[in-house]
Design a protein around this nucleic acid. Structure first.
Lengths: 337, 337
DNA sequence: CTCTTTATCGAAAGCGCTTTCGTTAATTGG
DNA sequence: CCAATTAACGAAAGCGCTTTCGATAAAGAG
């Protein structure tokens, strides 16, 4: 490994001057700077990130924490899309992402501890559970942080306009003539789930539509299987809804599966609208009508918010609410009477 | 930030002894070790990864490089599934993953340079293009490396048994009575594509089935759109195949789309078998019959191979061929009459 | 009781880099 | 021509930790 000491020796200058030349200090003449840069080139010198970070207290890394409750990790299409967007934007600013765990040399430590150990400049968390103590600990620390997919935390936040999304879904269904509209909700322990419920309730109210017993059903944590279970219950109702707004595409897919299994048709018998617009949505049958979350924008804004805090060297509490969009495909149709 | 110096002062020992106590050296008495650990607990001491790495030349990090040609990055379901599995296994051994880019403080550097700068202990690359110069550079470096999804490189490799997969697909189709079997291939510049073609050819040969002009068509880099384009060409043939083996699920989905658009049915008119078994495969209509790649095992073996090299402090050239599995769903049917 | 082991600890150097502060030489101003 | 700037550079300390090697004291051997 070639160090600044090596290139100092080669050029005849001190390590101080070499370091300064490399960091664009003004008190090094252009001539010597060129000489040094030439030597750097010739000898294939590369700085050592660890030494640099140790000295400057800045690591140019961002720690990322994923929801850990479910087993999917970065396999989740919605989360991975956001992270991919975040990564691109962070990279452009010169930051690398580091995925840490709770395992430090076989000792169990918290995420915050691990990130402190790594000396990250900031943290991004994508986590649905708004009560997660690990997340709270990080929010209360001094490390800049941005959390995605939560509302109402004492830190910088980026989230979709879930209330509006819920309204959008219900209003669209209503515009097709539906009045018996059910909602397979995301668990209210997740802010996303809770807000979509609010949107659903608000829209139903504004439309003066009744929400019969059983029409608002907790689908849990957004998995296909939970969507199935919820839909089965809905199908058992005396007055089966003609349309259902499902709080996540995966659950919607599950719902559609059971509807088909029961010999019913989507959308002819029951209209289904999902939420997220994951890749799969456009390719299942029928193609899923859904509320699209702008993952590119979410990742971008999250990166912005975090960079800002790092730059200003202090935690900022800023919220960005990202608009959602109704994507009309084939899983909803006019109510036949 | 509390350092070993702080806890040395508090306990009355030297930093040397503190460090030794923390690293389980034998020449520190049990009594003082306990005192020190107590102080560590009380003061909330955490080691500093940068200082540690600088001193020990070991960073407990693994660099990951993703195929960069396509825009999907970690959104790709197959790649992200592998990385997720790799991550879990690496974490268990105490390693963190770091995603680096080619941007170092706005200077364009190679992946190898970036990983050197970061001082990673090893590199994992998931990249289809077997000729990528960036990858070659890393393979030729001294850093332990494992590359996934390539054959025939001078380094440790983990890949699916693609030849066998190709045979499996063809033989299954043949067992259903099909003889006019086409192949929408992955680009031969990718080892995966090339090997699946080999498997297809071999199986067709063994079965003494002809491969008419146009039956072997290059689908490109595995995207849905490329699958569509390829299928359209197949449909233009004088003698349209009754079954097609598609080298990737995404392409297969595209193929199915165009078949439907043309008013034909899957599998009644044309049977389709895919490759990968991405999540979506089980939920499209018809549910996609496919060759499943064992992403969990691939990630696991890759981690093992890399850990071994790191442990032994030298590059090893070991290949792991991971078995694939035929997943029968609904997109293939018996050849009528 | 003297000599060798063994157990326990610390001084100091070093990892590669940054940054403060001082020094020297060259330049400017009057 | 002399004093005051300014330009260009380097010594040295420090970031937090590890590791070698030596020192001391206690224990064991004969």
């Amino acid at each position: 490994m070639v160090t600044i000491y090596d290139i100092a020796k080669k050029t005849g200058f001190s390590t101080t001057t070499v370091s300064k030349a490399l960091n664009n200090y003004s008190d090094v003449s252009e001539k010597t700077r060129q000489k040094i840069l030439q030597a750097v080139e010739d000898m294939g010198y590369l700085p050592n990130a660890h030494a640099q970070s140790l000295s400057t207290k800045k690591s140019w890394t961002i720690g990322v924490m994923f929801a850990e409750d479910n087993e999917v990790g970065m396999k989740h299409p919605f989360f991975s899309a956001i992270i991919e967007s975040f990564r691109k934007n962070a990279e452009r600013e010169g930051y690398d992402l580091i995925f840490a765990s709770r395992n430090l040399r076989n000792r169990d430590i918290s995420y915050l501890e691990h990130f402190s150990y790594r000396g990250v400049d900031g943290i991004v968390v994508i986590c649905s559970d708004s009560q997660d103590p690990q997340v709270q600990e990080m929010i209360n620390s001094t490390i800049p942080i941005v959390v995605i997919d939560m509302n109402n935390q004492n830190c910088s936040l980026v989230y979709s306009d879930n209330i509006e999304g819920g309204k959008l879904a219900v209003n669209y269904l209503h515009s097709l003539g539906h009045t018996k509209i059910a909602h397979i909700a995301g668990d209210p322990s997740t802010d996303a789930g809770a807000e979509r419920i609010k949107g659903y309730n608000k829209a139903m109210n504004d439309l003066k539509l009744p929400i019969p017993e059983g029409y608002l059903i907790n689908g849990g944590l957004f998995s296909i299987n939970e969507g199935k279970e919820a839909m089965e219950k809905l199908l058992l109702l005396d007055d089966v809804p003609t349309a259902v707004f499902v709080a996540g595409d995966h659950m919607a897919i599950g719902a559609i599966e059971v509807i088909k299994e029961k010999g019913l048709r989507v959308p002819e018998d029951i209209s289904i609208i999902g939420y997220d617009d994951i890749e799969m949505a456009a390719y299942i049958t029928p193609k899923l009508t859904t509320i699209k979350q702008d993952t590119d924008m979410i990742g971008f804004q999250a990166a912005q918010l975090l960079m800002n805090q790092i730059l200003q060297k202090k935690k900022l509490v800023v919220s960005k609410k990202i608009p959602v969009e109704l994507i009309i495909r084939e899983s909803c149709s006019k109510k036949e009477n």
